[in-house]
Computed example of a mutant assay.
Amino acid sequence: MAEPTLGRSAQKRRAILSTAQSLFLSNGYQGTSVDQIAAGAEVSKQTVYKHFGDKHELLVAIVTETLSDTVTPFLDRISALADTTDVDGDLAMLARDYINAVLQEPVVQLRRLVIGEANRVPELAQVYYEQAQGRSLSAFTEAFARLHDRGLLVINEPALAAEHFAFLVIGRCVDQALFLGAGSVRSDADLDALAEQGLAVFLSAYRPGT
């Protein structure tokens, strides 16, 4: 089914967001002016301010909407894990998809941008953490608690288990990507193998009878 046609105002807003994100990622937040954003989006400076009160509000909107598009669908996958009948298989698939999701180049670039601006725009870092890591860890916590109740895993501290799963699967790769870029990590590492190795350690700690 074709996407609904956007009105002129919505089209301008999307153009501003897209242009601003591209400029922020290439030039940095401080190195990008509203004049540049307006020129790239082919709108007036007043139009930028009409949709977004200032450059800071624009950056927050980019982070919020990007994370909504990338994180929300994944949260549904995590929630579905609570009802699985194949813990090993579904966790393996989820681990592989998780590591590939966080190593998308736009996601890594956005994370770099947020970290770089954390001192100047601390509330942005708070928004990013709550919308990305915070929501993901909460979803894993709820799913693991349910799997414990069903006797499929032995997890007395679901929140801690959620942290263990996340960092065993993605921790090293995320750190490398922040310094070296997602492309470098993807070309040098077998991501599926890393996900499976991290999951193996997780299951050795939380599988019943181990």
Rank of each mutant, 00 (worst) to 15 (best):
V154S: 11
E57P: 02
T5D: 12
V102P: 04
Y128F: 15
F202S: 13
D35Q: 10
S33W: 02
P208W: 06
F74C: 03
A125I: 07
N100E: 11
Q21E: 09
L194K: 05
F52S: 03
A95R: 09
Q126N: 04
L59H: 00
G31L: 10
D69N: 12
E123A: 10
Q133R: 08
G209N: 13
A118W: 00
L17G: 06
E42L: 10
F24S: 04
V108D: 00
K12N: 12
A125S: 10
L110P: 02
T72C: 06
L59S: 01
P106S: 12
A161S: 14
L191Y: 11
Q197A: 15
A41E: 00
L168T: 07
L168Y: 15
L124V: 12
V114Q: 02
L91Y: 06
A15I: 07
F179P: 00
V127S: 02
T5I: 09
Q11K: 12
F202T: 09
P4E: 07
Q109W: 01
S33A: 03
L191S: 04
V43R: 06
V87S: 04
Y29W: 05
A200M: 09
Q133V: 12
A139P: 05
Q126M: 13
E157D: 13
L23T: 06
R14E: 15
L91N: 14
R111Q: 11
R111N: 04
D69G: 06
P4Y: 10
V169C: 01
F165C: 08
A205C: 15
T32F: 05
G181S: 01
L17W: 04
V169E: 01
D149Q: 15
S9K: 14
L75D: 01
S22H: 14
R8V: 06
P208M: 13
N156H: 15
R186H: 01
L153Y: 11
Q131H: 08
T64S: 12
D188K: 11
S204P: 00
A159C: 04
V154W: 09
T141V: 00
Q109M: 14
Q197E: 12
F74R: 10
N100R: 08
A10I: 00
A10C: 02
D76R: 09
V60R: 02
A200G: 01
L23V: 09
V48K: 00
D192C: 05
L23P: 04
L124D: 03
A125L: 14
A132V: 04
V108C: 01
D97V: 03
E123D: 07
L178T: 09
A20I: 09
